[in-house]
Design a protein around this nucleic acid. Structure first.
Lengths: 342, 342
DNA sequence: CTGTTAGCGCATTCAG
DNA sequence: CTGAATGCGCTAACAG
């Protein structure tokens, strides 16, 4: 044996080289055995396998992905792991447990700075090699087309990307607002979502349309910024409630904002839903856990995740055409809405 | 120039080579600029930076991780993305948003086969290269020690790994059972968790101890398998309710099992909590959303995720010693428990 | 059937 | 201050 004698068993991982040395074969042979390719004697095969087991060797995803085109890993790219993305992830994971794919979720909105959004950054960092395809959650920028197969969930520009999954935001928002109108509310406020998201614009539009259809004026003073996030929502809600004649109902652009709104209202001694009705959007698990439980528009998040994966896998495996999938958004009436007090 | 002339601008990603060519410098120079190292003229620096921005270049995680020791990515290894892991992930993500680390969550329980568990496989595949450290959620096997820094959450063997975060399962289970006893229940069943998990054993032990302390017999017929998963839990619950004299209360080893138990009970026309009291464990968001809302033992999941990350980052950055962190588990009484009917 | 060779995209010496 | 060579762990040709 003339292999480098100075090489000790290194610190961390077991590499293919370690296996090769222990089995007395070349790394190429080990590679063949591991990948079940032809051209290896049965005896050799078994010997290598035993060493692999003994050493607990597992090929490095990183190294493999550099040489191979397929890694059998699907990437889910999110800005951060908030409830919305989490529920999506749940569906993705479920759908993938029937397939040969593993899931890798990446939250890349941390080390910011570049003028590119997190979506492009994450795609650049993972794409092409590490993952066979990507599910991108609420991307805000147009995504590069030259990359891996991907489907966007609730994307910024609506169906601009080739493959998308979203819900009927316009209709859902109309239903929510009409529900409040039907209850007898006349001063209905809206806590906006992130202005750069198509979904947020559609929800606001649905709110406006419902009001107008009912012959109600859209009062600009009753539209505040919520940004889809608790911190901004708290400010927006406070501003609304500080109005000389505050609204009797608030339709928030998502559940997190709605829940925050409820906190703000409770903090001011308002009783829900008697003094203020609140409606959200999304129906994350947390929505049903508030007191009173939140009336909201349900997006079938897990189902959206599953649909996205189904489509993606078909695109990867069968070269299926990218399409647009639109799911329905349905009002779920719970306890946070009631008729305004006389 | 004798470089391969046949090389075209390739399909997918922008590589460091593209940037170098566009900026008219060598890849080494680009590398230095990107990593902010000394030895580059200011003018060159700026020119390269502009090209980087123009092309939207972002270094490949894969390639980088092969050569570098640090990637500034923390891995969260889970079997699958169920509510428990999701909540943990939420805390992890939160805690990491203050740091320079990105989060990468990997669900590796899919392509099984090897006698190693998913934890070891995932660690082998990602460790050492892709991630700087790992948070492993409910590992069931003893983890190799020679790998990257890691902390285990709710591990199989209890505090066998050097760094762990868990809750006081024994105490939580006792409280849950004592609550039922205090309500007047005498036939209290237990829906077991996964037998290979320390947490499940402790919860059963807490149940037994509480019964014994109250002078009640532990009836083996009242202990069924739940496996922490809805499918098994449904069977276990059905078996319990099929007993000649069924229990008046069921303490399930986790919320998913408890929720499934409620479904099974409702499906048989039982009214909750009058005909049957149910207690869970974990307090995932879904627990408060059931009707009636589930009485359960709260594990501070997000806080556990945060603690795990805090510890891990200190281990990576400052070489801190691994420790064991135990958090308290507290009973949350909601509507799914009541005194048994006379 | 098995070993040798080349190179994936990048960071890192080490000469210019 | 810059550029050419080297190798990370692995797979795909090809040679023996």
């Amino acid at each position: 044996m003339t292999s480098t004698p100075s090489r000790l068993a290194h610190a961390g991982r077991t590499t293919i080289t370690d296996v090769a040395r222990a089995a007395g074969v070349s790394v190429a042979t080990v590679s063949k055995v591991i990948n079940g390719r032809y051209g290896v004697a049965a005896a050799t095969n078994e010997r290598v396998m035993r060493v692999v087991d003994d050493l607990g060797y597992e090929s490095s995803l990183v190294a493999t992905s550099m040489r191979r085109s397929r890694t059998h890993v699907i990437g889910v790219l999110v800005a951060e792991f908030e409830p919305f993305a989490l529920q999506l992830l749940h569906g993705v994971s479920e759908a993938l447990s029937d397939t040969a794919y593993d899931v890798l979720a990446y939250a890349g909105a941390v080390s910011s700075g570049s003028h590119h959004g997190w979506e492009s950054r994450s795609l650049s960092r993972l794409g092409g090699t590490l993952i066979d395809g990507a599910v991108v959650v609420t991307p805000t920028v147009r995504l590069p087309e030259t990359s891996v197969p991907m489907v966007a969930i609730d994307p910024h520009t609506g169906p601009a990307s080739p493959a998308t999954v979203d819900t009927d935001n316009l209709r859902g928002a109309r239903e929510a607002t009409e529900h409040l109108i039907g209850l007898g509310h006349r001063r209905i406020a809206h806590l906006r979502g992130r202005g750069d998201l198509e979904s947020a614009r559609l929800r606001e539009q649905g709110y406006r349309e419902a009001l107008q259809s009912a012959g109600l004026d859209v009062d600009p003073a009753l539209i505040a910024e919520g940004g889809y996030r608790p911190a901004e929502a708290a400010e927006g809600a406070a501003a609304l409630l500080d109005l000389p004649t505050p609204p009797t109902a608030i339709f928030a652009a998502n559940d997190l904002s709605a829940i925050e709104t409820m906190h703000v209202a409770s903090g001011r001694g308002l009783r829900l839903p008697d003094d203020l009705s609140v409606v959200g959007f999304d129906d994350v698990p947390e929505a049903a856990a508030t007191t009173p439980p939140l009336t909201t528009v349900r997006q079938p998040l897990a189902a959206m995740g599953r649909s996205a994966v189904d489509l993606l896998v078909r695109m990867i495996d069968d070269g299926a055409e990218p399409t647009h999938i639109r799911m329905s958004a349905d009002l779920i009436v719970r306890g946070s809405t009631a008729a305004p007090r006389a």
